[in-house]
């Protein structure tokens, strides 16, 4: 059988912020780049995100965060991923992310950061490059 591998990505919005337009347009752009995008919607708890990523066997978790809580959320989620054995899954984050926080996120183990204003092209390239 011919191997037919595609990048699967879970797009999730943790916490309380209610703006998902950005997450939705990114989801469409990723689909158009040939990826399978599982859109899990607003107000996701970290438990729900972990459970969804596990069951969906995704390659990437893409968080959209605009609340300013990206550092503690990513730190906690990364620890939970470790604990649940999601060792091959990459964590990425986009949204309202100040540039000075990017090194801190990388230190936590976030594989790619896409702050507001990143072009679709760069997001797609950034995700694809995680699997080169």
């Amino acid at each position: 059988m011919a191997i037919n591998k595609k990048i699967r990505i879970l797009i999730a919005k943790p916490g309380l912020d209610g703006h998902d337009k950005g997450a939705k347009v990114v989801a469409l752009a990723l689909r158009d780049a040939g990826m399978e995008v599982i859109y899990s919607g607003l107000h996701q708890t970290l438990d729900q995100i972990i459970q969804s990523a596990t069951q969906e066997a995704v390659d990437v978790i893409g968080l959209s965060i605009m609340s300013g809580a990206h550092l503690p959320i990513c730190q906690k989620l990364k620890a939970m991923m470790q604990e649940k054995g999601l060792v091959h899954t990459k964590l990425t984050v986009g949204g309202v992310i100040p540039h000075q926080d990017i090194p801190k996120l990388q230190e936590i183990g976030v594989a790619a950061v896409f702050p507001g204003g990143t072009s679709f092209e760069d997001i797609i390239k950034g995700i694809n490059s995680l699997f080169d």
Binding site: A33, M35, S40, A57
Partner: peptide, 29 residues
């Protein structure tokens, strides 16, 4: 799947997400 790009938006889970943390429910898109 999109016949053009081969990609897909899998949105069914969105409607069932309240069961996501239940260990006795397994949802796969």
């Amino acid at each position: 799947s999109s016949p053009i790009s081969g990609g897909a938006i899998l949105g069914d889970r969105l409607r069932m997400q309240r069961h996501a943390a239940d260990p006795n429910v397994f949802i796969r898109s």
